Amino acid sequence: MDKRYFSEEHELFRESLKSFLKKEVVPHVDKWEKDGVIERFIWKKFGDMGYFGLTYPSQYGGLELDLFYTVIFLEELQKINSVGFAAAMWAHMYLAMTHLNKEGDERIKQEYLASSISGEKIGCLCISEPFGGSDVSGMRTNAVKEGDYYILNGSKTFITNGVYSDYLVVAAKTSPELGNKGISMLLVDRETLGVSATKLDKLGWRASDTGEIAFDNVKVPVANLLGEEDKGFSYIMQHFSLERLIMAINAHARAEYALDYAINYMSERTAFGKKINEFQALRHKMVERTAEMEMCKEYNYSVTYKLSRGEYVVKEATMSKLLSTKMADEVIYDCLQMLGGYGFMEEYPMARLLRDSRCGPIGGGTSEILKEILSKIIIDKKTYKPAVEV
């Protein structure tokens, strides 16, 4: 336990969460992976345990705990060997709910944030588009105000919880002539006429429902505007730091899980009359990969600490995601190799872990986009400023 970041209360929470996941989630994971559907009962159980409310205000059912409880939550979710299940949980909890909490008015918080914390409502965040991907400013989805409604048209894709969620937090252009300065965030109920979703078939993250969503003349009440009109891009950018840090923490946690599993396997597997953890080439490979994982983990904790103190960490969080997701892919690749033929078998965890991890350098901003953002900060000396919180 690193006492700079984690107290005894944190560690008690970790142990409690581990036992909850082992009892309530692990027995169902293979079914959810196979079916591509996470059953609703588990969302309510997470809500009942307070997990969705870790960092949220108490007046809506939250626990107002520090960000290192979130670190523990993310780390342990990576170690049940279903990154898709983990993604469904954190996409609800930190992508959709963050916008409700930061930009939603009191009615929205009472009606949607509280029921999201309790696990009764599931949310998703809709930013990426079929023609845009990481190019947020190039989005085509638009919302035209007519009286008390916005008329929403367009499509979104690669949306985690995009099929089975109850509400959608949607980025749309309300003033297209302003480019990225004309984007607004709208809260859309799933049952609204004109909303449709198609489930996507993915390489990994198979337990989670990833959808392509279409909006066909959807009437969204003006009252469902989140924050101010045309301020959406700055809200998105502000919250991206948290998303990138989450994906970095996920990466170091699944790499750690893979290393623990592989090193334990190597201590039991015999070849040529000795345990394979006695072969120097294999020992050194595991040492190198462990060092890389520990370096990323330590840096991610440092960035979490800065973010928890209110620092604007767009540079650091971008670096965290860029390096940690690359590291995790390389670690898991080598850990699978240590298992030989068994690494390639679905009954062992590495095959699924390898597939699941591959989304790390893609989702939440591709590594290529992150490098360009960092180039602007490091080489062009560009500074990014936080949006004024509503």
Rank of each mutant, 00 (worst) to 15 (best):
V26C: 07
V25M: 07
H92Q: 08
S58G: 03
K371Q: 15
T198E: 15
L77E: 07
E212F: 11
K199V: 09
E346A: 13
P386Q: 06
A258I: 01
T366N: 13
V29E: 03
K34A: 06
E288P: 00
T198A: 12
E75R: 10
E292Y: 07
E111I: 00
G179Q: 07
S19M: 12
V331W: 01
E347I: 14
D201K: 14
V29L: 15
A317F: 00
A258T: 01
L152G: 11
F41A: 05
F6G: 11
I263Y: 00
R254Y: 15
K45H: 09
K285M: 15
S367H: 07
L187I: 08
S16D: 14
A207T: 12
M97S: 13
I378D: 15
K109D: 01
T304L: 11
R254Q: 15
E316V: 04
K274A: 05
L225G: 09
K285R: 14
A328E: 02
V188H: 04
L203D: 08
G211F: 05
A172I: 11
G36A: 04
C124N: 05
L226H: 08
S208F: 01
G147H: 08
M338G: 13
N142L: 01
K109S: 00
F85N: 09
S302F: 12
G119N: 05
G36V: 03
N217Y: 07
E191W: 05
D189G: 10
T198Q: 14
F240K: 06
L225Q: 10
S357I: 00
F279N: 02
L54K: 04
L336S: 04
M247D: 03
I246D: 02
G227Q: 13
V218Q: 09
